[in-house]
Simulated scan of single mutants.
Amino acid sequence: MNIRQEPIHAGEFLLSEANGQISREAINVAAGAALAPGQLLGLITATGEFAPYDPAAEDGTENAACILFGPLGQSDTMRRGRAVVRLAEVSEALLTGLDADAEKALSARFIIVR
């Protein structure tokens, strides 16, 4: 018997968000590997594109800025995506890359980890 694990769906990490989807914005995501919903993202200072949060980086992505809403495929070019950027409650268990510093940075944007 084959057992398949279902991936995280778009927005599945959201527990609640502000009315009218004010919590979300369209964003530019840097070229790179495929990303799943719930991936924490930081803003690359030099390009204005988002990339996976990396606490060891020194390019801006060391600061968690938002959470990717839906999946993005691997790409050699910049991709358009949507992210939760403010006013939301999210499930800790469904986030990728979360640490204490990221949780603090997200809370400053009124994204509360539960």
Rank of each mutant, 00 (worst) to 15 (best):
E92D: 14
I67D: 03
L35D: 05
E62D: 14
T96Q: 08
A10V: 04
A31C: 01
G20S: 06
R80Q: 15
L98V: 05
N2K: 08
Q5V: 12
Q21M: 11
E25W: 03
A88W: 11
F110T: 06
D59Q: 01
T77H: 04
R80P: 00
I3T: 10
A33I: 02
H9K: 15
L72T: 02
P37S: 08
C66W: 01
L98Q: 04
S23T: 13
R114S: 14
A46R: 13
R109Y: 03
E92G: 15
V90F: 01
A36C: 04
R79V: 00
V29I: 12
E103M: 13
I27K: 08
G48W: 03
K104M: 15
G81W: 13
Q5P: 02
E25V: 09
P7S: 12
G97A: 10
A30W: 03
G97E: 07
A93Q: 13
G42S: 08
D99M: 03
L40Y: 10
Q39I: 05
T77N: 07
F69C: 00
V85E: 11
R79F: 11
L35G: 05
F50G: 06
F13C: 08
E58I: 13
E89Y: 12
D76K: 01
V85C: 15
G48Y: 03
A34P: 00
L40T: 05
E58V: 14
E58P: 03
G11F: 00
G81T: 06
L106K: 00
Q39V: 11
V84N: 09
D76W: 00
E49F: 03
G11C: 07
F13E: 01
L43Q: 09
L95M: 13
F110A: 13
V85L: 13
E62K: 03
T45S: 14
E89G: 04
E58W: 06
G20E: 07
V29E: 10
G42Q: 03
S107K: 05
G42P: 10
E12Q: 15
Y53C: 09
E6S: 13
N63Y: 05
P52L: 02
V29A: 04
A51P: 11
E92C: 14
G60H: 12
D76N: 11
I111K: 00
T45N: 15
F50Y: 15
I8L: 14
L43K: 13
I67G: 04
E12Y: 01
E25F: 04
D54S: 06
R109W: 01
F13L: 06
A36G: 04
I112C: 07
R24E: 04
R4T: 10
A34Q: 03
E6D: 08
P71W: 05
L98F: 09
G11T: 09
A105N: 11
N2R: 12
L41M: 06
L94A: 14
V85T: 15
L15P: 00
L95A: 15
A34R: 02
T61E: 02
K104G: 12
L15F: 06
L68F: 07
Q39D: 06
P52G: 03
I3A: 07
I67H: 06
A18F: 08
A83D: 01
G60F: 12
F69E: 07
A18N: 10
I67V: 14
L95D: 15
V90N: 00
G60V: 09
G60Y: 12
L43G: 07
R82K: 11
L87T: 08
I67T: 04
E103I: 05
M1Q: 12
L72I: 02
